[in-house]
Design a protein around this nucleic acid. Structure first.
Lengths: 336, 336
DNA sequence: TTGTAGGCGTTATCAC
DNA sequence: GTGATAACGCCTACAA
């Protein structure tokens, strides 16, 4: 790796002139510029990002943290984000972390490195982020909130998602709807279950939530509650449920209906027939890019909680849809 | 973010003394050291990694590149690697790339940043890596080889994996074994299919390879070849196949056997009953860590191709197992 | 049109 | 024990 000073020596000129050539700045003869560019190419010259970052105090990297839990939906999201960032000449640095300590440690590192932005999926809910970090880097938390000033929390309206699911199934004639979800205490999980329960009450349906589905408790719940539909927290759990149902000997959708959430492209490849609620993944990425486009000074002042679906729309410039949007949102490759 | 110079001023001492305190170096009084550490903590001081990297010419980061193809097996691998690196105080920087250009661009960036090592899963086979990169950073390519001097290619012996699968199924009494794999031209895919074919010939079995399984061509192949066992390229494809079989109305393993490859922990959670060949994931991570432990000067001289299973063992210090190892390698939660 | 100087933050090596 | 100085590579401002 050659330095710009070394390059200047090889060309027999000064470092300043080399800089003018490399950055297309005025005040240099065409001949000299050409020569510098030729030599640079020949030597495979690349500016040292560390030096530039040190000088400018700004990095061209966006840091991302995700739990080591292997979640295909998270990967779909970050792949999308990486693509969007690449277009703006920014890189995404992904780091898997196992726990709260590693999470905060990584955030400190991002701050010290002057990353442009941190986009995180916290390994736990409500982690308290020290002020030293929040003043140092704009922070967007996805799916699960963090505690701390100026942190943006980006999420779909999970309660409404839960309600949507119940309404959709009820309209299809279902009366006994079971909700399958995780025992983990996380915002998205709790809120979605809450919406499910509330909507069930409004429609005079009995609600029942099953945590951490397995062969035994699923079988038991099926016998006890005789549900005609299963509303699963996400596509992954829907898939697992379908596998279990097939072992039990129940067919989907003839014997029982299964509804997932996410519309994960990766899982769609595995099980194209899955019925699922589409998660506004593209909106999330769009919103992140919008936040990034703002001036850093303004970033630390604004704070909003994207728990209202309309907020997402406003940010991404989409018009508020009419009532029937509920149906449009539902991807039905196979009716369930 | 406070600098060490600023910290020194606040303590009323020089930068050099601050450095002695922060790095536990001798030549400083206990009282001064304590004071510096206290002030550092209070101000949330963190050395700027860019400055350190600039000075030392070495980064504490390992760069990783993986295709945007959402592959749970890759994520399992990198999660393991991140964990192992964290123990050595190294970070893993993961970057998803879409194509050859982005891949090479990212490698150049890694080189410019003086990363300790690049661990890559190339988006295509046999990408030519310029010398400028290979001399700048030690490079390990996983699953799919790259062209270029000094590049280490780390992979299990894929041909042998293909043979193992056939031998295993044949010993269970299967005579008609179909191989389901991808159309993509990649080393692991081609080599595994090659091993499958060769072993079939040796055992006087007819071999048939089905590319890009879907509902239609699977049904057709089942009717035409009447296989009793399906050997799938990986767990993911095995799962997809099992879903299709269940739609067709065939039960696994009663009507037909399905064998996957990877022993992916993530997919095991989805379908615990899947029979699969264990991929030596831990060995791969161990080997990477061993390569990392060597001196960089030596790294650029050695070159080896880990296509012989014995080579992996040698590097990781495991004894060569006896014949029955084939059986031990196979994870059979449910006999297929 | 070109050369020179200074500083980003850290660390190693001098001198006191 | 402590303080001063130089250097890593880049970029900007100013001087020639």
């Amino acid at each position: 790796m050659i330095s710009s000073l070394e390059l200047a020596r090889q060309c027999g000129i000064s470092q300043g002139t080399v800089d003018r050539a490399l950055h297309n700045r005025p005040g240099i003869s065409a001949k000299t510029r050409e020569k510098v560019l030729r030599m640079a190419k020949r030597n495979g010259y690349r500016p040292h990002p560390a030096a530039r970052e040190l000088l400018t105090g700004q990095s061209l990297t966006v840091g991302a943290i995700l739990p080591t839990v292997n979640n295909v939906f998270f990967m779909d999201l970050f792949n999308e984000l990486a693509r969007a960032l690449a277009k703006q000449n920014l890189r995404l640095q992904l780091t898997p972390v196992e726990n709260r300590d590693a999470f905060l440690e990584m955030l400190e590192d991002f701050t010290a490195r002057r990353y442009r932005l941190a986009v995180v999926i916290p390994p736990e809910d409500n982690i308290a982020v020290p002020r030293a970090i929040t003043v140092g880097i704009p922070l967007i938390s996805l799916f699960s909130p963090c505690r701390g000033s100026g942190i943006r929390f980006l999420s779909a309206d999970e309660e409404e998602t839960g309600r949507d699911a119940v309404r959709y199934l009820h309209r299809r004639g279902h009366q006994r709807i079971l909700h399958l979800t995780y025992a983990r205490r996380a915002y998205a999980i709790a809120a979605r279950a809450q919406g499910y329960k509330e909507q069930c009450e409004e429609l005079d349906l009995t609600s029942k939530v099953l945590l951490n589905v397995d062969a035994i408790n699923l079988r038991e719940a099926l016998q006890r509650y005789r549900p005609t539909a299963l509303f699963c927290h996400n596509d992954w759990m829907a898939l697992r449920t379908m596998v279990l149902l097939s072992e039990i000997g129940l067919r989907v959708p003839e014997d029982i209906s299964v509804l997932g959430v996410d519309n994960s492209p990766t899982l769609a490849a595995l099980q194209p027939g899955l019925t699922t609620l589409a998660y506004p993944l593209a909106s999330i990425v769009d919103t992140i890019m919008l936040i990034l486009a703002e001036k850093p000074s303004r970033l630390n002042l604004v704070r909003y909680l994207l728990v209202e679906r309309s907020t997402v729309r406003k940010l991404t410039g989409q018009p508020r849809r009419e009532k029937k949007s509920h149906d449009q949102k539902i991807q039905t490759h196979r009716e369930s």
